[in-house]
Design a protein around this nucleic acid. Sequence first.
DNA 1: ACCCAGGTGGCCC
DNA 2: GGGCCACATGGG
Length: 200
Amino acid sequence: MNNIYSLYLDLLKKHGSPGKYWPQWCSKSKSERDREIIALGAILTQRTSWHNAELALLNLQKANLLSFEKIGQLKSPEILIPLVRVAGFYQSKPKRIFAFSEFVLKNKILKREELLKIKGIGPETADTILLYAFDKPTFVIDEYTRKLIKRHNLSQNLSYDFLKNLFEENLPPQTRVYQDFHALIIFNQKDQRGWGMKKI
DNA sequence: ACCCAGGTGGCCC
DNA sequence: GGGCCACATGGG
């Protein structure tokens, strides 16, 4: 068995299925609202704590704007500024969630290479949206993933595309496995700092 | 007064 | 292709 897959099994054994920690993100059946929370949240949490991203989502909800359709049909993203300010980068994030929502309204199928053309959607955000909001089998690489790879000396090359291929080539190509593995990587790291459990 | 949080695009070489 | 940097808020 390969090292990457063994790592997944070890994390799964240690923490159990992450569906119980991230039920909305890892469940198979998602409502449109779940997808909106996950996809808009993925943009709002860029270089920002999930806590603050969540506050921004709540502001959108209170304003009855937590919706691709409502946001995508706005005349301008400006009215979003006071709502998402709490998540930082308030000059760029309103434009990003506006551009993404518009894109969702115009495109029935979301293709990775098309998402990457949207200003403010890079590889990690695109893959997070595809994997967790739309259940497409694409692996997400983030700083937690890189730390894990470094700790286990599994690769010298830490570039996004190389690592994404490394994981995808060594795992069964299933949405569920990709979702759970990435969730476990984050959960395992947070243990290190927050809950004093042992590093795998 | 620092440092960090599930990044990205624009420069520069 | 890789190395910097600005972008902005809230919490520890």
